[in-house]
Write a protein that binds this DNA or RNA. Structure first.
Length: 710
DNA sequence: AGCCCTACTTAGGATACGTCAT
DNA sequence: ATGACGTATCCTAAGTAGGGCT
């Protein structure tokens, strides 16, 4: 696309004021731009290390370990000693189990200083990843058939064959790409003679093999309690060995300590590589990362690592390259670990910091909608989408990946422009594209006129498969955003708008007189608003229809009960009228109460049904885990005396321990206290104190300005 | 200024597990 | 005690983002 840059008269700037702008209602916040000069950034060190102090408040928690306050330096020194002492096997005295033990093991890292040099650790020791057991050949009586005849495959080809057999029930095996890829790859594992024989997947019969595995899994399910328990204990023992490392002298849980087993690649959506064989990973494929002074993990007997390195600028303990796409895979720590928690915390602090800039940024991009530079206009519209609709950045993708897009990679075919749409409004953009994980994004949104005009311009003379933002990519976008605010990138808007939405919803919708149950319902509603914003979908649960039916039945029962109770009440009423006795009065009141109670119960049931219906294809977990500042939820729980367990599961509580500890009942997402480094924004403004330009003036301007582009 | 690589976060489906009604 | 069902956890794919190289 050539598109000679827009040459429009540079007229007075518009400042399309808030109005119906970003979907989320805007607060008027004073963004203090001044003191920018005053406080200059200390050492850069990227990451915009926001210096936040844990609300140093009181909280002299009883179980605070003394060492908790140990500054990093000293911590490092202690590291070795403690690592030795912790020694991966439990050196804990066996008698003090119980909660006490758990609690004592908590490392209150959020009360310590962070590394200022970008280092992730000083000492690190672990046992390396856990490998998958070798392949066990099928028993003699289980046969794979080709063309109706038994074929005894060599172990290599047999193993790959079982991968497919195990997936026979899955929809994947109905897809052509999956079958083709599988068959191609499978043949690579065959001997010459096997290859000569097996030439057509359609002639393969995996039935017996599939049944064999089904049977095995049945057997597993049917195991006795004791057997199951034994198995569980075994797994726990393995986890004890491999599931933890010693990180700066503290025992920390590892996330994925198990090496991924071989199998068939299950890409999402229409992935061109689905069905390809994902190979077994051997020690010789694995790079180990650990402390220089630490004991290097032992490779399995007779084997060796690909490499052992000591890089403390990264957080992974082991890595390998996966063969299907050539991506790196990493063994990293669990979300409850310090290194993950600290970054999570930082992420939310960054989002809170954005709150200080958001008005300014919105104003800027609104003005840029009229820039004479096409690139700037595209950037401005893209940021608007990212801000308003919580779209992802949209990095470019290769042809050998599923065809999905985000904001920057949107194509003309992904939007439709409508002058107006019934029930939506004027200047409507209709989105329909596949996003991450090939999840469909469909939305009709009314946008500012100027945005609409720009979009008309962007699609002009383009084909459906052309890029909507042909002058833009995520690198350009993010480097601009980074100029706006230190550390700002596209994804921060998702975090920001998600957390902001939760906070606002809770602020608005919470009725402090509600019961715990109703409060939780309110919370889930707020959570759902976020999930919808972020387009977090899920497959409708297989049991949905059935359980809905059950609930409807309950409702019917309740209604019947109400009818009966009402009849009783009616009778009691007339009795009372006739008899006017104390007993009759009492009876009447009882009947009245009964009806009231039943009606209340019905209301609750109906609410649950609505809730369930509205939730059937929406996943709340993703936003809860990744986008919502946990302190909002925890603060809210504390304020309204809702037990935290009502909102967070065990693992979630572990992950958000830092937040549970530090958030008080008055926590508010918008009250960012962090030491904020304000930067000179003048280069972005290109204008006076634009803030005060009046809207009316702009309006007039807007219309004529347009025609001339290109 | 595009490409590739690395490191890390975010994501939904599969499955294990716990709970509740029977 | 048992099975059905819903939720929590596990698994690993699929994103983002930034740096280095050409």
């Amino acid at each position: 696309m050539s598109s000679s840059a827009a040459k429009m008269s540079k007229t007075s700037r518009s400042s399309t004021k808030s109005d119906k702008k970003p979907s989320i209602k805007k607060e008027k916040i004073e963004v203090e731009l001044k003191k920018a000069a005053a406080k200059s950034e200390p050492a850069k060190n990227g990451n915009g290390h926001v210096k936040v102090k844990a609300e140093a408040k009181s909280e002299p928690k009883q179980r605070v370990k003394e060492e908790a306050k140990t500054p990093v330096k000293q911590e490092a020194k202690n590291g070795k000693k403690r690592a030795a002492q912790a020694d991966l096997s439990q050196s804990e005295s066996p008698r003090k189990r119980k909660k006490k033990e758990e609690e004592e093991e908590v490392w209150r890292w959020w009360e310590e200083k962070k590394y200022a040099d970008g280092r992730k650790w000083t000492t690190l020791e672990h046992k390396g990843p856990l490998f998958e057991a070798d392949y066990v050949p099928l028993p003699k009586h289980v046969h794979f058939l080709y063309n109706g005849e038994r074929v005894q495959l060599k172990s290599e080809a047999e193993e790959v064959m079982t991968f497919y057999a195990k997936m026979l029930d899955h929809d994947y095996t109905k897809k052509e790409a999956f079958n083709t890829n599988f068959f191609n790859d499978w043949r690579k594992f065959m001997t010459q003679s096997e290859r000569e024989l097996i030439k057509d997947l359609a002639k393969c019969d995996f039935g017996q093999v599939a049944d064999y595995f089904k049977q095995k899994s049945e057997e597993r399910k049917a195991m006795s309690k004791e057997e199951k328990k034994a198995l569980k204990e075994e797994a726990a023992e393995v986890k004890k060995q491999y599931g933890f490392c010693v990180w700066d002298g503290h025992k920390q849980p590892i996330g994925n300590y198990k090496i991924e087993p071989p199998g068939l690649f299950r890409g999402r959506g229409e992935h061109p590589k689905m069905g390809m064989v994902k190979k077994r990973i051997n020690p010789e494929d694995v790079i180990i990362n650990c402390g220089k002074e630490s004991k290097v993990p032992e490779a399995p007997p007779g084997r060796k690592w690909k490499e052992v390195r000591h890089d403390n600028m990264v957080a992974w303990l082991a890595s390998w390259t996966e063969n299907v796409q050539g991506n790196s895979k990493y063994v990293m720590l669990n979300a409850a670990s310090r290194v993950k928690g600290e970054r999570d915390w930082q992420k939310y602090e960054k989002a809170r910091k954005l709150h200080r800039w958001i008005d300014k940024i919105r104003q800027n991009y609104s003005e840029d909608w009229k820039s004479k530079e096409m690139k700037v206009r595209q950037r401005a519209v893209a940021i608007y989408f990212i801000d308003k609709l919580a779209l992802r950045a949209g990095n470019e993708k290769d042809d050998d990946e599923a065809d999905t897009v985000g904001c920057c990679s949107l194509r003309v075919e992904h939007i439709k422009l409508h002058k107006s749409v019934e029930g939506v409004g004027e200047h409507v953009v209709e989105f329909d594209f596949l996003g991450k994980d090939s999840i469909r994004y469909q939305n009709k949104v009314a946008v500012e006129k100027q945005v609409y005009k720009n979009l008309l311009l962007f699609v002009e003379n383009k084909n459906g498969e052309d890029e909507l933002f042909d002058r833009l990519n995520t690198t350009i976008l993010n480097s601009y955003l980074n100029e706006c605010m230190d550390g700002l990138s596209a994804k921060v808007f998702r975090t920001y708008n998600a957390s902001r939405t939760l906070q606002e919803q809770l602020d608005q919708m919470t009725d402090k007189h509600d019961s715990i149950n109703d409060l939780v319902l309110t919370y889930n509603r707020a959570n759902r608003a976020v999930a919808i914003l972020c387009n977090h979908q899920r497959a409708v649960p297989k049991t949905f229809a059935k359980s809905m039916e059950n609930m409807q039945k309950k409702i019917q029962d309740k209604k019947d009960a109400i009818a009966d109770a009402e009849a009783e009440l009616k009778k009691a009423k007339s009795d009372l009228k006739n008899l006017k006795s104390v007993a009759a009065k009492k009876k009447f009141e009882t009947a009245e109460n009964k009806v009231k109670k039943l009606v209340e119960g019905l209301r609750k049931l109906e609410m649950q049904v609505t809730d369930k219906e509205e939730n059937k294809d929406i996943a709340l977990g993703t936003s809860k885990l990744n986008y919502l500042d946990p302190r909002i939820s925890i603060g809210w729980c504390k304020k309204h005396n809702v037990p935290i367990e009502k909102v967070y599961s065990k693992t979630q509580r572990d992950k958000f321990r830092w937040a549970i500890d530090m958030a008080t009942a008055d926590y508010h997402f918008f009250n960012y206290e962090g030491e904020i480094v304000l930067r000179d924004l003048s280069h972005l403004e290109g204008m006076d104190g634009g803030a005060n330009t009046t809207q009316e003036a702009d309006e007039t301007q807007q219309d004529d300005e347009e025609e001339d582009d290109d």
